[in-house]
């Protein structure tokens, strides 16, 4: 098990009282799975991802990442995190942005260079290593940030709505590339989204969440074939799964 959450709770104290961001979350994610967390805003999907990353501390229950508490997993550099925005440092070139985690982890400069080249090639940014982030399009920036998250070869990739700010066409393209990357590297991916087609297209497992309090309403295991061209989204199988996700989302809202 890469991630195991057991009765996980997280309450935020606010001026308007306590907000239950996560309520009794039970979830297991196995090695090599592609798991999407989907739900309306406020359902705690990003919070859950941040708990896995040790950027938030749960107030109850337990969570293990690679069998360790999240803090140890973070200190062991067990995961790469891709944020909603590319979060590239504008004073560093793309290549030096990708080598940032490698510098921090103290790799030799030869090793850094070799990995950066490999990552740039992997995400298809060949020839752009010497450019600065603000000279690239949004889609290219987000690809660079994925390369950065992959550079230190963690087995777990946490992605928080990475393509949310991009237009439909770029998004389709990056979804396709992400699937190929996942197949090529065999990593475990946790992917937060609020797009149903994106979740169904990418995932082996879809976790449907709903807000107030943030909780899981459905876990759907997708039996779509591994090989997924973009037009798989028109097949009855795909639409059936999408329908189930939509129902799960609606169910969560019926409580209000």
């Amino acid at each position: 098990m890469v991630i195991k959450a057991d009765k996980l709770n997280l309450d935020f104290e606010t001026n308007d009282g306590v907000v239950h961001a996560l309520r009794d979350l039970d979830l297991e994610i196995g090695a090599g799975e592609f798991v999407s967390l989907i739900g309306p805003s406020g359902c705690g999907k990003t919070t859950f991802l941040r708990v896995i990353a040790d950027l938030e501390t749960p107030t109850g229950g337990s969570i293990a990442v690679n069998g360790q508490p999240p803090e140890q997993a973070r200190l062991a550099r067990a995961y790469g995190y891709v944020f909603q925005a590319p979060a590239l440092l504008s004073w560093r070139t793309i290549a030096r942005n990708i080598s940032l985690p490698l510098e921090i982890m103290g790799l030799s400069s030869g090793e850094q260079q070799e990995r950066v080249e490999r990552m740039i090639n992997l995400v298809g940014l060949d020839g752009f290593g010497g450019k600065f982030p603000w000279q690239l399009s949004g889609g290219m920036q987000q690809r660079a940030s994925i390369a950065r998250a992959l550079a230190f070869d963690a087995d777990l990739l946490l992605m928080d709505e990475p393509f949310g700010a991009l237009d439909e066409i770029v998004r389709d393209h990056l979804n396709e590339q992400l699937l190929q990357l996942w197949k090529k590297t065999g990593k475990t991916i946790c992917f937060v989204t609020h797009s149903i087609p994106e979740a169904v297209y990418l995932s082996t497992k879809i976790v449907v969440m709903s807000p107030r309090p943030g909780r899981i309403t459905d876990v759907i295991t997708s039996d779509l074939p591994d090989d997924r061209p973009l037009d798989i989204r028109e097949t009855p199988k795909f639409l059936e799964i999408a329908q189930r996700v939509r129902e799960g989302l609606r169910e969560g809202h019926a409580d209000d």
């Binding site: 990353a53 040790d54 950027l55 973070r74 200190l75 062991a76 550099r77 995961y79 790469g80 995190y81 944020f83 909603q84 925005a85 979060a87 440092l89 940032l100 985690p101 921090i104 982890m105 230190f152």
Partner: peptide, 11 residues
């Protein structure tokens, strides 16, 4: 976000 990023590297 940039601070969180550095945190995820355990910087």
């Amino acid at each position: 976000m940039e601070r969180d990023l550095l945190d995820t590297y355990a910087a």
